[in-house]
Design a protein around this nucleic acid. Sequence first.
RNA 1: GAUCCACUAGCUCAGUAGGUAGAGCACCUGACUUUUAAUCAGGGUGUCGAUGGUUCGAGUCCAUCGUGGAUCACCA
Length: 497
Amino acid sequence: MTENEANSPVTAEEFNELLRVRREKMAALQERGIEPFGHRFDMTHHLQDVVESFSDLEGQAVKVAGRIMAIRGHGKTSFVDIIDLSGRLQSYFRKDVIGDDGYETFRLLDIGDILGIEGIVFKTKTGEVSIKVSSFVLLSKSLRPLPEKWHGLKDVELRYRQRYVDLIVNPEVRQNFVLRSNIIKSLRCFLDDRGFLEVETPMMHPIAGGAAARPFITHHNALDMKLYMRIAPELYLKRLIVGGLEKVYELGRVFRNEGISIKHNPEFTMVEIYQAYADYQDLMQLTEQAIAKIAMDVLGTTKITYQGQEIDLTPPWTRMTMSEAILKYSGIDFAQVENIEQAREIAKKLHVDFNKQDGIGKILNNVFEEICEKNLIQPTFIIGHPKEISPLAKSNKDNPEITDRFEAFIFAREMANGFSELNDPIDQKERFIKQVAERESGDDEAHMMDEDYVTALEYGLPPTGGLGIGIDRLVMLLTDSASIRDVILFPHMRQRD
RNA sequence: GAUCCACUAGCUCAGUAGGUAGAGCACCUGACUUUUAAUCAGGGUGUCGAUGGUUCGAGUCCAUCGUGGAUCACCA
């Protein structure tokens, strides 16, 4: 049935049998004076509490609420499974307890209906903790049938489009999203404990900066101006460090107008963290400590299994420069490269693509991505990124062609990216100018000029370490989810019709 | 954007060689006062993703389109 039909006052004949029967039952309940959509209910326990506290609760009256997931009828008695967020509990309806009238009402209930139940806690002869219903109240009539009880909802398209159904029938999906919430809670706790200040900066930017990505474009009517949905909060957060806030973080959504895949959603959640007077080494430590602490909080261990692969998140993680990684996985020493011809030669030899205008740094990065990334299963910090691909990172003191930057890889995926922030306004302006030139020569992911950001740096940005962690990918890792869509409640889908 | 795969009842799936559309669960009728995938007897509830085409005849073959998935490209 289409949404149109669901919202229009159709006659019963237009529904299929399953929908029609439920509406007829709703009407029958109303005829018996029962309101099919209730108001509130005071429960004394969640369902799992009843099971866990059975020895204390046996023989006592409790009030619980939940959704009917199974009905096993036996004539004048019935066993009814109900679920809430905490778990499942069996309830036992008896005609001689709730009366003829109550039992007639009970028989108008369906799988999917939401009930409030008052009854006595007991154990059945097969040993299952149950509640003998002394009274019940319909809290919400369900007008649509739920998917099958033991296969659940498998169709991934329906699972994403109708996540509410997915959440009802697939308990592990519910658990994953509870875990996601716990991960974020744990991260906040970690940062708050270390004196970081949580801040909120604009999501709509006049200039999209802080990352290399194509932005979504929107428009403000009253100001009649073009605005970009933010691709990163970075430049605003560093303005706050200029302003003296010292240790800040922002946890929130960013938007990138790019392809959708198992690892990419157009909007995703990241945390960016900035710490004045720190450098990339400090932030590397912070990264491994944060992720290990989160894993400990939500899973109770730093040794996890992702897609069948054992991964040990215990710090310290391996540290390796980009060139070292290339040497390790290809046997070629890229650090010896002195000119662009040599770099191109290596790329050709390793069958790595590059563009004519790419410099040594970009080719180095291409080679790394092509040859090394797939090998970085255990947590690994890659450091020594070329300046060419790091327009916001501070150059290394000893080798100005590379930056004091790191990326954390786990299971061949970039999980975090951080660096000592470039705080030299003159250097920053030059790098912006280079980015603008790249933009003009067709790279629509290159940075735009942000004059105000340069002005902020001119007031003085203390030496600062910065870090971004992709929360969705972290949640994927800790929930053993193969697709980012499994950790985003409502992943983006093409509109139907 | 490219390639491959999928789309059949509310859900999970079968459908042989092109010949009247199937099963389990759910649902409906009846029996049943401790079941738990309850059981027993009976009932099939359908725009086979859409539109064309081939054919006496299409769920099945062909074409186009739609939606989704996987891989690739882009990216985090």
